[in-house]
Structures are given as C-alpha cells and as structure tokens.
C-alpha cells in the first residue's frame, strides 16, 4: 500500500514528517526514510462542516494520528464517532480533487 515517507534522524532518532533539511531536535543532517506503521492512535480531531471550495461535503473528520513507530500525521478519519486516544488503521485513498486530478492521502478507520 502506498503511504507517506517520514524521516528518522540518524543522530538522535527523532522522527519527522514532513521533511526538513535539519533535524528539529538536534540539527542533525542525516536521516533514514521510514514508513509509518499500519496502526496508530488519534491525538486530536475536528469535524469540519465548512470545507473549502472544491470539497463538496459536510462533516469531514480531520485528525492527527500518532503511528505506533512515532510518525505523526494529519489525515481523514473515516469513523462517525471519533474520540481522542482511539486506535486507528491507516488507508490510502483519494482525499481531494485538485485541478481535475484525484489526490491521494492518509485515511483512517477504527480498529482494535
């Protein structure tokens, strides 16, 4: 399954997403590319009723997830009753159409 690429500092082990030229923790310059694990936990979320132009829906749930290997990323939460701390399983689906092209991104569903 396609997913995002995150970065682990070879000096201090700090995990970053998105990419930075210098480690945000130790200013290190060498990184190992890593993928997020398949599961994580919801850190915070919002249910958005007023979405921007081009997304014709209401009630999209957006949330920040911390994967089990420490990667943190925003994504679309595909569960009607989100709660902080809930376990989620990652997916990779179209999240927006930009200039007529489907753009894929992280989606999350409830799991144990």
């Amino acid at each position: 399954m396609k997913t995002i690429t995150a970065y682990k500092c070879k000096d201090c082990g700090h995990v970053m997403y998105p990419h930075h030229y210098r480690c945000l923790n130790c200013n290190g310059l060498d990184f190992k590319e890593i993928s997020p694990t398949t599961k994580g936990r919801l850190l915070t979320y919002t249910i958005v009723d007023q979405l921007p132009w081009g997304i014709d829906e209401r009630g999209r749930v957006l949330g920040v997830v911390e994967f089990d290997n420490g990667v943190k990323a925003l994504g679309v939460i595909k569960t009607a009753k989100p709660r902080i701390g809930m376990r989620l399983k990652v997916g990779w689906q179209p999240v927006r159409v930009i200039s007529g092209e489907k753009v894929y991104g992280l989606t999350f569903r409830k799991t144990k």
Binding site: T46, V48, L62, R96, G105, L106
Partner: peptide
Amino acid sequence: EYIYGVTLPALAGM
C-alpha cells in the same frame, strides 16, 4: 495538510 481539506478553523478546532 492542504490536500486533506484542512482550513484555519479546522486547525483551530483541533
């Protein structure tokens, strides 16, 4: 962030 439809109110909501 942007591709997911995030807005400034959405960031503020979280």
